[in-house]
């Protein structure tokens, strides 16, 4: 474990906590894409299949359970909570997320480290996570005003994978140059997708004005 990866995990955890707080405190999920949240549940389920078969560390197991639990409860709130589900922008959150999942699965069948169920599904989760934010970014462009909590949530979510990129550089130089193309390239794509959001987020923060994404 290095400081970059720990910072990445904490940033990721913070983003999810902020989203859960927003939903629970305001009893509203306005501006949040249910499609992206459902993709994250699939990402965690397919990535943590070896949760009970392979013990890495107490930290690793705990964080996996926290990520699974929080992401599933967010989807539950948005789908079934009587008050929250009324605030879901159903008619704006129209991104066909299966158009993202299917190519990722096919790509995982083609490009992977080894052809086993666990490995192919893990690879699928890496590819899927790279594009899972797209429905959320599209929804942000459609919703006129973005509330601060939602903006902070997306920013921290993008920042976590950027910290993971730094972690991978650090590990490359400190762990006998182990090459890991699949997470590296996917992580690069994932972080790049946030580029314009980062630009507008930092601009709005500097000019102390409301975050607004161009349509």
């Amino acid at each position: 474990m290095n400081v970059f990866r720990l910072a990445g995990d904490m940033t990721h955890l913070l983003s999810i906590i902020i989203l859960l707080l927003k939903i629970r405190a305001t009893k509203s999920c306005t501006g949040i894409s249910l499609k992206t949240q459902e993709l994250y549940v699939i990402v965690f389920l397919t990535r943590y299949l070896d949760l009970f078969t392979k013990y890495i560390s107490f930290y690793n197991t705990t964080m996996k359970l926290v990520f699974l639990g929080t992401s599933i409860s967010i989807v539950w709130y948005m789908r079934y909570h009587k008050v929250v589900k009324q605030t879901y922008n159903k008619d704006q959150d129209t991104f066909r997320h299966y158009f993202l999942a299917i190519p990722c699965f096919l790509l995982a069948l083609l490009i992977h480290h080894e052809f086993t169920v666990i490995e192919v599904l893990w690879t699928f989760s890496i590819y899927l996570e790279a594009v899972a934010i797209l429905p959320q970014l599209v929804l942000l462009q459609r919703s006129r005003n973005i509330d601060n909590l939602t903006g902070n949530y997306v920013f921290l979510l993008g920042a976590y994978r950027a910290l993971y990129l730094v972690n991978w550089v650090y590990r490359y130089f400190t762990e006998n140059h182990l090459v890991r193309w699949i997470p590296w390239l996917s992580g690069l794509v994932q972080t790049t997708l946030y580029a314009d959001f980062f630009y507008y987020y930092i601009k709005s923060w500097k000019n102390n004005e409301k975050l607004q994404l161009p349509a």
């Binding site: 990721h12 964080m63 992977h112 480290h113 893990w122 182990l178 890991r180």
Partner: peptide, 10 residues
């Protein structure tokens, strides 16, 4: 492809 990397990350 490289060796199957250890899955110690989240």
């Amino acid at each position: 492809s490289s060796s199957k990397d250890v899955k110690d990350e989240l």
